[in-house]
Design a protein around this nucleic acid. Sequence first.
DNA 1: CCCCAGGTCGTCA
DNA 2: TGACGACATGGG
Length: 277
Amino acid sequence: MLKEKIITKRKIKLHENDLFSPTKTFDCGQCFRFEEKGDCIEGVVGHSLLKVPSRDMTGEIEYFSDENFDGFFDADKSYFEMNSAFLKKGTPAVTDAVERGFGIRILRQNFTEALISFIISQNNNIPRIKKNIAEISRRFGERFEAEGKEYFAFPTPERLLDAGQTGLCECKLGFRTKYILDASIRLISGEICEEELQSLSVDDAREKLKIIKGVGNKVADCTLLYGLGRLECVPVDVWMKKIFEKYFDETPDLGVCGGVLQQYLFYNERYLKEGKK
DNA sequence: CCCCAGGTCGTCA
DNA sequence: TGACGACATGGG
């Protein structure tokens, strides 16, 4: 029997002066399951549809869902205060990035979904990453309905392992298939466990995640930052390498909330390149 | 047919 | 340690 899902309008208070920009937040490369639909951005989180009006919001976040997602938006942190700390670093590159990126929030995503998604992201481009993730969800995720349409949760490790080589290869995951299976096995056995990782230092947690085949520093740091809320993690990909070379004399230490600043720098650089809003 | 994409692995000095 | 090609797939 299906439980009726009632989509209701919800609001979360942010710190005074805090800004939330849905367009920036959902298009800055941290998540892959959200799309603009009319005047909202919508996507699946857990087993729910989440809709957010596209307009920027100050002091609060308004969204539509059958579930409470206050934690997802990282609402209790003051990004305004973080930005003040970043601006004290004073370099022009940091100032530009903070001004351009203000409104981005690091989403507190599901751990398994973040891990598998960023395994898929390696040597891949964003449109295709989104396609791959949509396809494994459609084929192996739990189906649910919202507002008369069907949606799919992100698949569990059990379902991914069931899918096997054959099922996953049909999703055009290529060489990443074996990595996803390895991750699934270690998640199911408990060798890799969210609670344990949370109790470890970032360095120990990173090394633990790197036990998984196909997980190196970058995927591990993305998992820690987006899937475990470790804001001090700074994933360094080809973009960040270029940014460091272009704007800094030596590899900078971005500080305790370096992951946020990294996101601003990444967003700003993509903005400059693609000339998008 | 080339190159590249939010990397990582295996191999060889 | 560090350099270097391979890896699946699809778009430009």
